[in-house]
């Protein structure tokens, strides 16, 4: 490990700074979503579409993936190859399940007549959740890459910082989802299924 002025590894500092920048990205999306809430001229409207129970389940799945990420990091740090492989894979799989849920939801909305250019809700919803989904997808690819490294025995404790940085990213993406879940779903006035 190189010497740094603060003792914090450069990679970790980079991720924290990057997360700061990402906050502005999602803040812009969320602000737009809020400004355009209830401004659609034609339906289908959000309260007719959003399925809160379903999304609550996928939200839970994503939260559990954060827990798996914590366990994965701890396994890497203490040099437990079996745990590393298992928990990295589980994190990625839970992320994939979340993405599958999002794919199902988008597909369902399109069938209900909510094409991308249908109304303002469509644009703000698909772009905001789509941006988040893209972040999850990048995270899944990253985790699977780490997992293959672990399979080949190349993810020992000396790589703990790399896994920690990936974990920071993953937790951030989760936290963003909590905000989106609150803003888009819970505050929508949708009554449920």
């Amino acid at each position: 490990m190189e010497r740094t002025s603060t003792g914090v590894p450069n990679e970790k500092m980079l991720m924290w700074t990057f997360i700061g920048s990402e906050c502005m990205l999602f803040a812009s999306l969320i602000a737009t979503f809020l400004v355009y809430r209830d401004q659609s001229i034609v339906g289908p409207y959000e309260e007719e579409l959003l399925n809160i129970p379903f999304i609550t389940v996928t939200t839970f799945v994503l939260l559990m993936s954060s827990l798996m990420m914590v366990l994965a990091l701890s396994a890497v740090q203490r040099g437990d190859p079996r745990g590393s492989r298992l928990f990295l894979l589980l994190t990625a799989i839970l992320g994939l399940i979340f993405l599958g849920g999002q794919f199902y939801e988008f597909n369902h909305f399109v069938h209900e007549g909510l094409g991308l250019s249908r109304n303002l809700f469509a644009g703000t919803f698909y772009l905001t959740t789509g941006f988040h989904g893209a972040h999850v997808a990048v995270g899944v690819i990253w985790l699977l890459t780490l997992w293959t490294l672990a399979l080949r025995g190349r993810l020992g404790p000396e790589k703990a910082v790399t896994v920690e940085v990936a974990g920071l990213y993953w937790h951030f993406v989760d936290v963003v989802w909590i905000v989106l879940f609150t803003v888009i779903y819970l505050m929508s006035g949708a009554t449920g299924a």
């Binding site: 920048s21 990402e22 502005m24 990205l25 803040a27 812009s28 999306l29 737009t32 355009y36 991308l116 250019s117 109304n119 303002l120 469509a122 644009g123 703000t124 772009l127």
Partner: peptide
């Protein structure tokens, strides 16, 4: 400062290419 600009250009790109209504 750059991320809000990125987002607004993405909106514009979607308006122009995919007919969104931002």
């Amino acid at each position: 400062a750059f991320p809000p600009f990125t987002i607004s250009t993405v909106f514009l790109l979607f308006d122009r290419m995919f007919g969104t209504l931002f």
